[in-house]
Design a protein around this nucleic acid. Sequence first.
DNA 1: CTGCTGCATGGGGTC
DNA 2: ACCCCATGCAGCAGA
Length: 865
Amino acid sequence: MESSNINICMNEACKATTSSGEWKKGWVLKSSGLATLCNNCGSAYENSIFCETFHREESGWRECKFCGKQIHCGCIASKSLHDYLDFGGVGCLSCIKFSEAQLIRQIQTPGDDIFGGLGTLAAICDPQSSAVENYMEGNIVTKGKLVKLSKNMEESEPNGHNLFLQSQKGEQNLSSVQTKKAVNMLPRGEAGPGISHLSQQSNQFSITSKQDANPQPQGPRDMYESLAQPSLNFSFSSPLSTSNTLQMSPGEVVEGREKSRVPPFQQGQRSRQILPKSSKSGIPTVRAQGSNGAVSQTRVARPPVEGRGRSQLLPRYWPRITDQELQKICGDLNSTIVPLFEKVLSASDAGRIGRLVLPKACAEAYFPPINQSEGVPIRMKDIKGKEWTFQFRFWPNNNSRMYVLEGVTPCIQNMQLQAGDTVTFSRIDPEGMLVMGCRKAANSADMQDSSTPTLPNGSGTADDLVSAVKVDQPTDAFDWTRKEEQRGKINGESTPQQMGQPEKKKSRIIGSKSKRLLMHNEDANELQITWEEAQELLRPSPSSKPTIVMVDNHEFEEYDDPPVFGKKTIFTARESGEQEQWAQCDDCSKWRRLPADVLLPSNWICSDNIWDSNRCSCSAPEEMDPKKLESCFRDTKKRKLLENGQDCEPSGLDALASAAVFGDSTEDSGEPSLVITTRHPRHRPGCTCIVCIQPPSGKGKHKPTCICNVCMTVKRRFKTLMLRKKKRIEREAEINREKTQIRSKSELGLDGSSEHALLHGNGSETETERSAVKVDLAVSSNKGNLDLNCDPNREDDATGTSLASLVHVASLTSEICAGGNSVPAPGACLISQAVDENEEEHVAEETDVTSMDVEGEQEKQEIKE
DNA sequence: CTGCTGCATGGGGTC
DNA sequence: ACCCCATGCAGCAGA
């Protein structure tokens, strides 16, 4: 009750402290000219002091909207004397009781003084204010009463839009008044302000937002990347138009658009019930302006300004749209944007099912009420102005409902969103059209990288997975918890965002409940590989030592810790049998020879090469000629496949793949010979651990007589390839004939240059030669992997050429199969069968193959990326 | 076989 | 303890 050297911001969400000598800089003294004693109870009422970030606009003194009686709203004892009007303002209880029904009619009547009167009020009570919340819950007025009044208003108001317009008008007046008042209330001196913890009077929770005349350009971390060209030609066609709610808060709009001096960010007038309780789950942590007057670019969680509010809206759904983004969406037009809520996309949301699960509270607050499970179509625009129609519906779920937006896949794909990104739902007013915005997760992979601090203070670590993902604005929204932690600390100019944040609360920021969403992006990338490829990346946990157990005379290594992903390396062996390992630098892509037993982290560069001082820098040349290296790797792959084939009878697929890889690669580099490699880098040839003995998916499951879809596809494919080969041979023969003829002619009369032109001009021969090279390169670059999905029609495609070789090999195998008594290779049999099959299916099959090609290449591309 | 639909389940957050 | 919601999955329809 007493003034002291330390002033505390009256806002419960802030509670910042400052010494009395400092409060001028960023602190606003409120109500200094008003009475300090409650007229009703005589209780002392303190002048309030707020830091600008949280400064509130009014004193505890109100005027009854109906009778003009002065009410001190900050006085607990006055609880029986007044009530908060859900649409704003204060009324004494006697008036409220008398005129509740009349109030509704007044609201509906244009020109009624209610909203005009709002403008004459020094301020209105903001039911959304946390202070109000606390206060009301504390003693003043029951929430149910407000809800009741709110519902009455909603139900009795057939035209919410009109209501909104009225409200808006009134609030705009209010805003101007508030702005003026704020200016008038600039600090007058150090005297007066005192500490007050008790003043929980219902005050409007106005947030100053000073738009800099020269707003700073958005940094790369400022998101809403695709907000660039919002179209604001929206129409009020959304079913939301039926929403009988007092709608947006113009203060919010002002905040986003105007460059007024201290326009209060009005947190809306209604739907207090959709807000969480302040002190626990987070008061609106709006920090629209720092005390230095910097432009507001911070991403703050703003409680939605409206909604039917049938349930609470969790802070994680509060829109964190920045003023800049608001401005972008609003553009220069007269439309205003009302942030409603946002949601971090889950894997399910971003998946191909096309169902976006809507938070129940949000759905019920901002979407039209639906009684049928089928729901209603909802038109929505994205931030580029493209209109989408989704089906808004629900499913019964545990005596509740689960609301979903169906058909969002095209929109999400259009915005290139994925799990972890955020979709925002806003409304353009006065049109009322819903706008679906987006915000990319801020380079989560990078931010999760332990090498890159994610927070300004460098507190980001690899463990800060959650915060790293979502703390995209370090000086951004802070949550209530953190504010609570700051209580008692000097705030001053420091940004609370720089404070540490409990791990538990970090997940709040990401907005996700599910740990499944928290998958490291790199991990996600790792999952975009095949099972076999994954085996090559698996490393036993460095910290764990295996326990060797014997099962059926096989040694098994048992690890207590799960395997970890390491860098993919290639194992080779010298002729002496000595094994070695090759790793590629992530920076220069040069291959470095390493001891066979070392395990590399997922990221490895030359400077990490502690085993070869001569090649511990990217500037050092590669030890081996790239061609030889490729050959070596190819041989490695070949040997590996051979080993696999010896272990178990190859399936048709395996045989074909092996044949394809081996067939046209007989080059012997003379360098380290092909070596028996394992699927498990840690494991040596002969290892019989569960990893090494387990066949890859599908291996061994397909018999030569198998007629499963996979095998049938392969059969058809090879039939196609055989035909292709036949045509190719014919064409080459024809080309050769032509060349022979040309040579004959040139020998007869043409000069050398013409011959050269002919030979190189038509490119026939060189094309063939190139093809031969490409065969080699294709296999090499693919590290021996056979791409069965290549397009046989692409003659100039390296992979396709290699497949021609594959066909050649396959045909040879087929001949063996047909002519010998030996047990045919399954692949050969497949080919044999394929040759016998009718050729009529070719056209359709080629189409299938082409589609497979595309998918296969896309898949490879994704893996590369 | 694939994709869609609707519901069930259970982890986890909130009250 | 309640309940939200991310996800799994069975059933169904169409290709």
